[in-house]
């Protein structure tokens, strides 16, 4: 059986400094993996490598069944969709038009693109501002539109880079619940995040939510949300003390000051 994403001994360097150092990681179809790690650990580089946007110094990346750098654009887009960390929208295009353009990989009519875009926008409850220019939307609204664009691409693997960054608590929860829904619908999910506690909103069995730690370009652990020693692992990863708290049946891991 093929994997959604298989990374084998991947080393990526920039200006002589290794961004990723011999990372091996595999994601099965329909699997959920949260990738945590401090700033500059190489999490975003790993996603970019999965999309074939960076060149490997050594090692291999297999996206679905192929090397992403050998794939044509539409074939690559059929295997993975990406929620980038930053907006990057350069002109005052409307939310609906932005999501429509995410349908690039499909050979279809404009009406079909529009219908799919409207469905994706409804999915993130963004119909109300579908006609407004993306550049005039709030950070939370822009993120929902970006999620809709990713959904509209209908890829079996979702690569999410800090999906809840700059969102208010209600939006953070809504975003992770949506990620959980997409996962249960069969998507494989690779989610880069700092905030482990938000992962509980994905829902389902915590043992099925994989968590891998990345520090200085290396994989430091590969465990799950149900791991009893998760706080210790994450504490070592970030280099801070972590404490575990039970609140209303949910387990929270909090960073503490001091040794």
């Amino acid at each position: 059986m093929t994997t959604a994403l298989h990374i084998e001994g991947l080393t990526v360097s920039a200006r002589g400094r290794p961004l990723l150092d011999g990372v091996t990681l595999s994601l099965a179809p329909g699997e959920m993996l949260a990738l945590v790690g401090p700033n500059g650990a190489g999490k975003t580089t790993l996603i970019r490598a999965a999309l074939g946007m960076v060149k490997a110094a050594s090692g291999t990346v297999t996206l679905g069944d192929s090397d992403p750098r050998a794939l044509g654009g539409r074939d690559r887009a059929a295997r993975a969709a990406w929620l980038p960390q930053t907006g990057g929208v350069v002109e005052a295009i409307s939310a609906l038009e932005l999501v429509e353009s995410a349908r690039f990989r499909f050979h279809e009519t404009r009406d079909e693109s529009r219908a799919a875009a409207q469905a994706a926008l409804a999915r993130v409850k963004a119909e109300a501002f579908a006609q407004r220019p993306v550049t005039q939307l709030s950070g939370g609204e822009q993120q929902r539109v970006a999620l809709a664009a990713m959904i509209a691409q209908q890829a079996p693997l979702l690569l999410l880079d800090e999906p809840a960054n700059h969102l208010d608590p209600a939006q953070q929860i809504a975003t992770y619940k949506l990620i959980g829904e997409l996962w249960r619908e069969g998507c494989a999910v690779l989610c880069v995040t700092h905030d482990i506690n938000l992962l509980r909103f994905v829902g389902g069995d915590p043992a099925r939510v994989r968590i891998a730690g990345l520090a200085e370009g290396r994989l430091s652990f590969d465990s799950s949300l149900a791991d009893p020693f998760l706080a210790d692992r994450v504490a070592r990863l970030f280099g801070v003390r972590m404490t575990t708290h039970e609140v209303g049946g949910a387990r929270l891991i909090l960073a503490e000051d001091g040794p």
Binding site: L51, R74, A81, P84, G88, V89, E97, S101, F104
Partner: peptide
């Protein structure tokens, strides 16, 4: 046209959406 429209969302995103 379609590729250029996708580029409005940023070149990296356009790349991930299948635009060469």
């Amino acid at each position: 046209t379609r590729a250029l429209n996708a580029l409005l969302g940023g070149e990296q995103r356009a790349f991930s959406q299948g635009v060469d």
